[in-house]
Nucleic acid binder design. Sequence first.
RNA 1: UCCUCCUUAGCUCAGUUGGUUAGAGCAUCUGACUGUUAAUCAGAGGGUCGCUAGUUCAAGUCUAGCAGGGGGAGCCA
Length: 465
Amino acid sequence: MEHQRRSKISDLLKSKEYGKEVLVKGWVRTRRGNKNVNFIALNDGSVVHHIQVVAEVANFDENLLKLVTTGSCLAVKGVLVESQGQGQNVEIQAREIEVYGSADAETYPLQKKGHTLEFLREIAHLRPRTNTFGAVLRIRHAMAYAIHKYFNDQGFFYIHAPIITGSDAEGAGAMFRVTTLDAGNPPRLPGGEIDYAQDFFGKETNLTVSGQLEAELAAMALSLVYTFGPTFRAENSNTPRHLAEFWMIEPEMAFYDINDNMDLAEEFLKYLMQYALDHCYDDLEFLNKMYDNELIDRLKGVIGSSFERLTYTKAVEILMASGQTWEYPVSWGADLQAEHERYLVEKHFGKPVILTDYPKDIKAFYMKQNTDGKTVRGMDVLFPKIGEIIGGSQREENLDALMNRIHEMNIPEKDVWWYLDTRKFGTTPHAGFGLGFERLILFVTGMANIRDVIPFPRTPKNAEF
RNA sequence: UCCUCCUUAGCUCAGUUGGUUAGAGCAUCUGACUGUUAAUCAGAGGGUCGCUAGUUCAAGUCUAGCAGGGGGAGCCA
């Protein structure tokens, strides 16, 4: 039966070519029936829905049908017909069934009944075969594609930032060391310290925590650029919003100020929400029904809203005047806590919020300093349910001002000489932001735990698979 | 890392003031059933109660430590 072309189930479910001979291949979700007829729900991952294969028992070897278990993989040749039963429009009257691989029913861990997400995490190698993870992975793909499409259409260039970095200057968190030295017996200097001169790169190296500094270098030549790659944080964070390995999108734009930056962030996010609604509606509907009844409304809400923009100082005033009691007190100069951000987004404004002009002492060295001497042109985009989805800023383009901050924050100049060169040679105002890809997927899928929106999550004490 | 909760059959969970042989639903297996929709009906098999110590005549149940997991917090994206 190999000469015929395989039809995707997504296409067949939309087809009206009744009577046509078709070939489908996929994995069995359930088989049920009686001594006369079997119904096989087959899924090939092209769409969340299954196609129903109808097998008249008399037409098949009994031993063959026994191999058609939940989880087994089949090729089915048959005729596409209008369904006689309720629940589906089309089905396949099977003529030939080939079992590529059966799945032992006693030991196959996935049942046709639902499983908890916690259990599925323990079998992450098989969970793509569930409706939930099929939907999440298709949406994840669509968002990755939409990100590239958006930036490409806007004239941005995709920059590949290095994954191994010799700089520790991003200050974005603890790093994973990269080394080829023998951990049990590293070469040592006379004083006892490890001699990294003998390491692969001749110096200490780590996995990147951000591609931003490299993106800035490229923006100083190509004007509009973005990175989209994996980043790594060795923080001992055990929350439903953190991963040790995650993907980040970091656009960087020459000639943009903080307002241009906010405009881009807002338009970009709305584009992605709209793309999901336009291209992943079946999957969103499934997730909306199974996990989060407000998912689709929330996505539409973001698209239809105008993000509230206000300064950190104004936000502090609102919080102090709110009459709320806080676990962490609000005061100018302290970073806002999750409870404060949630109040602003979910209670006070009821829509996404962009906060700007934070105290310089709670933000990174590269942010553009305001003339008040106290604040910097940082911006955080806060979303309902997940909090900070984007963090960005206009960058400090003035060499002297940047040098001052580097000295104040004790960043070794020798580690960032190449970054400083951009301010020495042809500097210009520029801005950018970082979007955590998995945080975006959390929001778009309505899933509650970030471990369920990446195929193989890396978290403290867990690097299985 | 801090606070808190959880860990009993393949999965989801009951399990009384500590007391004989640890239960249910689903799944699996066997059988029944002429089109099912997480099919239905009948029967059967399936357990080192997370691990290690301790208290006790007796521990799934009480205590401590450890491990793993969930939720909240911090760090952040």
